[in-house]
């Protein structure tokens, strides 16, 4: 199945490249270079939602820190093309208040063939005694039913007695042997951690993800920041790279 990726891609490229004026068949080499992407999950206009204000001890309109979701199609990447992204503002009709607890709200239409969506969502968190409870989170959900993913965390891997392979070192062979998860929050939000001393988000070190996209391609993906150049939060930045079988 995985070996057929080439065939599919080649075929697709062949079909799309059949232009009227150009009959020559060009099969571009797959882009395996490292890509970088930063998206905004906050944008104007501000959005207010009813919520409990702990300062005034009253239910009132509270400004949302994150009001936008960005769908990312990783497969769209080529030597000449960046990943396709589609941003949807809270006020747009297409916006879905993603909720992993609700089977009607754990997916969205997004853009054709999207793989992950960066968004605020109602996720699940450990309450400290092993029970998962609903909690507002900010991170990445996968395209339900079409994408699988797995978190690779150094200390987790090592505590299982396995050898950790770094982001730089992992290859197609390693990735293809992994059992990926089909949970929509397989990527989730725990790639960042709040530093309580400064109330800033730090990226968890030695942690990345293997994602098998809608087109069945393996990508390695790591988050690099939650901030833009002016250090405004809500701007997740990530690097990713296609993994191909070495001949």
């Amino acid at each position: 199945m995985k070996k057929s990726i080439y065939t599919i891609l080649s075929a697709a490229l062949f079909l799309f490249s059949c232009g009227e004026e150009n009959r020559e068949i060009i099969v571009p080499t797959l882009d395996t270079s490292s890509k970088h992407l930063q998206v905004a999950i906050y944008s104007a206009p501000d959005v207010y939602e009813e919520g409990f204000n702990h300062h005034t001890q009253q239910v009132e309109q509270i400004k949302l820190s994150y009001n936008r979701q960005v769908f990312v199609d990783l497969d769209a990447v080529s030597e000449t093309k960046e990943a396709t992204t589609l941003g949807v503002h809270y006020n747009d009709d297409a916006y879905v208040k993603l909720d992993v607890w609700d089977i009607d709200k754990d997916h969205a239409t997004g853009v054709d063939g999207w793989d992950i969506v960066l968004s605020p969502y109602n996720g699940r968190t450990d309450n400290g005694s092993g029970t998962l409870v609903p909690y507002s989170l900010t991170g990445a959900l996968t395209n339900k039913g079409n994408v699988t993913a797995l978190r690779i965390n150094k200390s987790e891997v090592e505590s299982n007695g396995d050898t950790f392979i770094s982001y730089d070192a992992i290859n197609y062979e390693n990735a293809s042997r992994l059992e990926l998860s089909s949970e929509v929050d397989a990527v989730g939000s725990d790639w960042k951690q709040l530093d309580f001393a400064t109330f800033t988000y730090k990226i968890v070190e030695d942690q990345y993800y293997i994602i098998k996209t809608t087109e069945g391609v393996f990508f390695k993906l790591a988050f690099t920041s939650f901030y833009n150049d002016d250090l405004e939060k809500g701007h997740p930045a990530l690097q990713f790279q296609r993994l191909i079988k070495e001949e």
Binding site: D195, A197, T198, T200, K202, F226, D229, L231
Partner: peptide, 15 residues
Amino acid sequence: TYRGAYLIPYRAIDT
């Protein structure tokens, strides 16, 4: 002055 960690290269938040 609390010196923050680099959030991205050359960029940090000090408090």
